[in-house]
């Protein structure tokens, strides 16, 4: 534990991509910058020269204050947005558009309101194996039976009752909905699971029970997870690796950069388990979140 505090910037992020890694790279983010034109001449920079390599099986938490661009980064991994400069690859190939390489659990609207829980879960496997006309084939019926059985299994695993399977999303509580949303993403067996503030709208008790559930699920199958949050305690509990994005507090016209990139203990840190150490770490991280440690770029663009 002490080692974490003493070497907060232990991983030189630029070097990571070139070093040979024990597990294959799941997500590769290379020198990504994002900026939008505002008005005729000016551009607003959101992200600036971000490079992150995420190994398979890592649980990466992207932490940062509101507006720091962490969700933008997630959307670029998804393929929903594209970097102005740089390159993003998932499972070794470049991201062009949204596809099923990544699973996705957003904060809201994570389920299709017009489908029951079971239909929501079955939708992914069904669409990926049978297109609309293919469903006329007799084999589809057996396939659907299998998928439904698997979906019920998954539901049980997520702590839902069999009777919930026929319900529509609006009949479930927010926590239940997010459980179903995680199950729905897991049904696709995607290599990478992207979660955008997935628990931020929930009340504290539900939130911590979902955090426990997510950790359990992750430790069982070890998918690669990229979890975006602005809550430091959540980040410390969930992740195996913490990446803090922040804008330099000295020069706020610049985009956000990686302010901190650190490994976390696999057991999950919490105030109850780690006491004062946890609090110190939170303090420490929040300094980075404010961008206190970031320097301004030198005139030639190099980051000192």
């Amino acid at each position: 534990m002490v080692s974490i505090l003493s070497a907060p910037q232990a991983r030189p992020h630029a070097a990571a991509s070139s070093s040979e890694s024990p597990s294959p790279t799941a997500v590769q983010i290379q020198n990504v910058s994002v900026s939008y034109p505002i008005g005729k001449k000016a551009r607003r920079t959101i992200l600036e020269d971000i490079s992150i390599d995420i190994q398979q099986g890592e649980f990466v938490v992207l932490l940062g204050e509101t507006g720091c661009g962490k969700s933008t980064l997630l959307r670029m991994i998804l393929g929903q947005e594209h970097p102005t400069q740089g390159h993003i690859a998932v499972s070794g190939s470049a991201v062009q558009r949204v596809d099923s390489r990544c699973g996705y659990v957003p904060q809201k609207y994570s389920l299709f309101p017009d489908r029951t829980v079971l239909e929501n879960l079955a939708m992914g496997p069904e669409t990926s194996h049978y297109h609309i006309l293919g469903r006329l084939k007799p084999s589809f019926r057996t396939f659907r039976k299998q998928v439904h059985a698997e979906a019920l299994n998954q539901l049980r695993h997520m702590g839902l009752q069999q009777s919930d399977a026929g319900k529509y999303p609006h009949q479930l509580s927010g926590g239940m909905q997010q459980r179903v949303a995680i199950a729905q993403a897991l049904m696709m067996k995607s290599r990478v699971l992207l979660m955008d503030e997935a628990f931020s709208a929930l009340d504290p008790a539900t939130r911590s029970s979902l955090q426990r559930l997510l950790r359990t699920v992750w430790s069982e199958t070890r998918p690669t997870v990229v979890f975006v949050t602005h809550n430091t305690a959540e980040a410390l509990y969930l992740g195996t690796r913490l990446i803090v994005l922040a804008r330099s507090s000295h020069a706020d016209h610049c985009g956000s950069r990686v302010a901190l990139d650190m490994q976390l203990p696999a057991s999950g840190m919490s105030l109850r388990n780690n006491g004062q150490e946890f609090l110190d770490l939170v303090d420490h991280i929040e300094q980075f979140s404010r961008g206190d440690h970031l320097t301004t770029p030198s005139p030639d663009g190099e980051i000192r």
Partner: peptide
């Protein structure tokens, strides 16, 4: 919501779907 459309694409839906 954009989330719904993105989600559908991550579930391997095509444009028609």
């Amino acid at each position: 919501p954009q989330e719904q459309i993105v989600k559908a694409f991550t579930l391997d839906a095509n444009n028609f779907d």
